[in-house]
């Protein structure tokens, strides 16, 4: 630069003057100075030219089409915008389940009394919510004195409760582990969104489950897909919401129900006689995880996993109603 730089305060004044951001008093004072200080006036002109050049910049052309793929981001039926009643009731269901299981442990479900219990004695943990209460799907807890098995039933009508092969423990573990992975993804997103200074964006935590550059596929509850980010907002398109394996029919019922509501895919056959908006909390550990004489460590471990998974599921479920 050939000319002498004016003081930075003057540049700030001139810059704000260009944008009309000076107070009346400041503007009048600056106008007076501009009439008497040619250097200041030249400075103003050069800054104004710079701003004009920037304004002249054309838009860039998008290097690719940014439209969303309807197959992935298909119709959604609504999202949770606040802590809905459903969440509250679900949370109560989880709390009840935890209390019941903890109670069962305290009552001595370590296998010592297993032989005393009636055949098939189980803890049925069914936190469920129903918009139209027909008395069928209330939260149920059956705690015989010698229960040694956990059952996470999605369907309290019991049509599949007792005749389903026990799920392999390792499979159940894997399902829980995968769900925890999804939880981590969501947690990261939330952390990131917390930094956003956007006013509109602060009313609801950023629930975007998608890491940069990786638009996700719709996730089902199947363990083999659970390593992908949860696409909880998008419900499933029919081709991406597949049925779970046959050995987890109870879970299939529940999660199909979830997918239906989220994606409105309308597979109502499994929800006979039930309100479509009915939601039940169930676990993908399988319908009948019958574990005889369960070691207490395993039970506690599974309990922790259950609570984590239930919590994750409730707070990531797209159903707002």
């Amino acid at each position: 630069m050939n000319r002498e730089q004016p003081p930075i305060n003057d540049i700030e004044l001139l810059s704000a003057f260009i944008d009309g951001e000076l107070s009346d008093a400041e503007r009048i004072e600056l106008n007076n100075r501009l009439e008497n200080e040619p250097a200041l006036k030249a400075e103003l002109e050069s800054l104004q030219t710079t701003v004009d050049i920037l304004h002249s910049l054309p838009m860039l052309k998008a290097p690719r089409d940014f439209r969303l793929d309807p197959a992935i981001y298909g119709r959604k039926s609504g999202r949770i915008t606040s802590l809905s009643a459903w969440r509250v009731v679900s949370a109560v269901g989880v709390a009840a389940a935890v209390v019941l299981v903890a109670g069962s442990l305290l009552l001595g479900g370590t296998g010592e009394d297993a032989d005393d219990g009636p055949a098939g004695s189980q803890i049925a943990i069914v936190p469920s919510v129903q918009s139209e209460d027909d008395g069928q799907d209330e939260i149920e807890a059956i705690i015989p004195p010698s229960e040694t098995a956990l059952q996470f039933a999605g369907d309290v009508t019991g049509e599949a409760n007792n005749n389903i092969p026990a799920i392999e423990e390792s499979e159940a573990d894997s399902a829980f582990a995968d769900d925890e992975g999804s939880d981590d993804d969501l947690g990261n997103e939330s952390d990131q969104s917390a930094e956003e200074p956007v006013e509109q964006d602060t009313s609801v935590p950023d629930e975007s489950p998608f890491p940069a550059g990786a638009p996700p596929a719709v996730s089902t509850s199947q363990p083999q897909q659970a390593s992908e980010p949860m696409a909880e907002g998008y419900g499933g398109s029919e081709e991406t919401t597949e049925l779970p394996p046959e050995d987890s029919i109870g879970a299939a019922d529940t999660f199909n129900g979830e997918a239906e509501i989220a994606g409105e895919t309308g597979r109502s056959a499994d929800n006979e006689g039930r309100d479509e908006q009915q939601t039940e909390v169930a676990q993908d550990a399988g319908p009948t995880s019958a574990i005889g004489r369960m070691d207490i460590d395993t039970l506690v471990s599974d309990l922790i996993q259950l609570v984590v998974t239930l919590t994750e599921w409730i707070f990531s479920n797209p159903l707002g109603r």
Binding site: R79, T81, Q200, E207, S208
Partner: peptide
């Protein structure tokens, strides 16, 4: 990602 986020948050 901003468009995906916008679609998710458009109810806001």
């Amino acid at each position: 990602n901003a468009f995906i986020s916008a679609f998710e948050k458009i109810h806001q």
